[in-house]
Amino acid sequence: MASSSSSSLSRVVVKSSDNNLFVVNKKVASQSQLLKQCIDNMEEKGTNDVILIPLSNVTSNILTLVLEYCEKHADFADDDNNNQELKQWDHEFLKKFDYATLNSLTMAADYMVTKSLLNLCCQFIADSIKDLTVQQIRQIFDIKNDFTPQEEADIKNENAWAFR
């Protein structure tokens, strides 16, 4: 990271796939390793211009959510990870979304390398699908069953206790 304050940026502009612009504070943007890497690269070059980072895979409604998460977590960045208030906030934050939004958010977190958001989303999805039936899983993740009825019966037999 650049040490001289004259070349360090305080803000960046992030562009969503549908061409909306978001002005983001550097501390907030640093929650995403992808944005942080862009900022670091620019600072190394010693540029003083405001930089524009296009995110071709993230729509503005999902980007809004990712930035909302980053903003909250930037506030708590110096606290330890076990902050109860933050955990509660995380839970309330994700609770609002349907599977489609949750999936998009997960993909955005993966793309923007926001590891804590990715972990949070994946754990949330895992918790919500763990009691679902096989049929429901196929539906949610759009997976086609390619077993014959005989094969299905064999697998059920193999692990009979898990289907009880």
């Binding site: 096989v134 899983i137 196929r138 997976i143 086609k144 069953n145 390619d146 077993f147 299905e152 697998i155 059920k156 692990n159 898990a162 289907f163």
Partner: peptide
């Protein structure tokens, strides 16, 4: 173990 049944 249950999800083994989803697909191959």
């Amino acid at each position: 173990l249950r999800f083994k049944l989803v697909n191959k």
